[in-house]
Design a protein around this nucleic acid. Sequence first.
DNA 1: GGACAAAATGAAAACCGTTGTCAAAATCGG
DNA 2: CCGATTTTGACAACGGTTTTCATTTTGTCC
Lengths: 129, 129
Amino acid sequence: MSNRRDAVHDILRHSDGFRSAQDIYAEMRSDGAKIGLTTVYRALQALADNGKVDVLRTDDGEAVYRACASGDHHHHLVCRRCGRTVEVAGPAVERWAETIGRENGFSDITHTVEVFGTCSSCVAALRAG
Amino acid sequence: MSNRRDAVHDILRHSDGFRSAQDIYAEMRSDGAKIGLTTVYRALQALADNGKVDVLRTDDGEAVYRACASGDHHHHLVCRRCGRTVEVAGPAVERWAETIGRENGFSDITHTVEVFGTCSSCVAALRAG
DNA sequence: GGACAAAATGAAAACCGTTGTCAAAATCGG
DNA sequence: CCGATTTTGACAACGGTTTTCATTTTGTCC
Ligand SMILES: [Zn+2]
Ligand SMILES: [Zn+2]
Ligand SMILES: [Zn+2]
Ligand SMILES: [Zn+2]
């Protein structure tokens, strides 16, 4: 039914790192797709609401999206240069967050965890410079 | 020298949780201070650049600031209802982030970690209805 | 104290990602 | 088909932040 939503989802599935709405919109337009920016935003919102994509905020406040392979709770190791992203599990972190919350009398504990670095290919590229 | 910067810093020092620029501006104005919003933004930027305050982004992309007691690397346990914030250390998380990065061939590893929950007083307030 | 240069200030405009509006277009149901 | 419902997208509006730039304050040297 919702062909547009699927189109947006497909773009994300074929991307490695996190992508912004405007980014996705630009790619779709340059691919000849007839779609409006509003619709891209709406599709991303719906996908995020249904847990189909992960969302996070860049340092400058922009929302970026990714269709992750894992549907389970996980975190991300992101190359700050090329955006390459690896999904990682962190049972120790999950336990730590829960414990630290409890110890301080907090309930309904959630957390956000992201790891950044420079991936090996980017290091190589920099060396070749 | 920079009287305004200190004034902004003071507001943060007397606040418990994270505060937004507009929030701080409103408080200063209602306290009779003669200051512009631009200056508040500039002061916060400078304080953040000098590592005097911690910054993070809310879910809706707003930047919020806090003058933390600890100058060392630490994370935050934040009440999502009243904003009360506890500074927490997580040596296990530091190690985990470093390891997971290394294992995937990443270097210059950094991370962001925040824990959210409902603090005990908020739970009590909710119960009292 | 002046005089002048450099830095700080703030009102208003510009910026930019995002959301709301609403009429047109596509889709559905009968 | 035909009316009802949903989806779409151009455009305007919004809100937080940054830029601009003329004015004010501060620092320095005499
Ligand atoms: Zn993910
Ligand atoms: Zn987790
Ligand atoms: Zn802190
Ligand atoms: Zn840490």
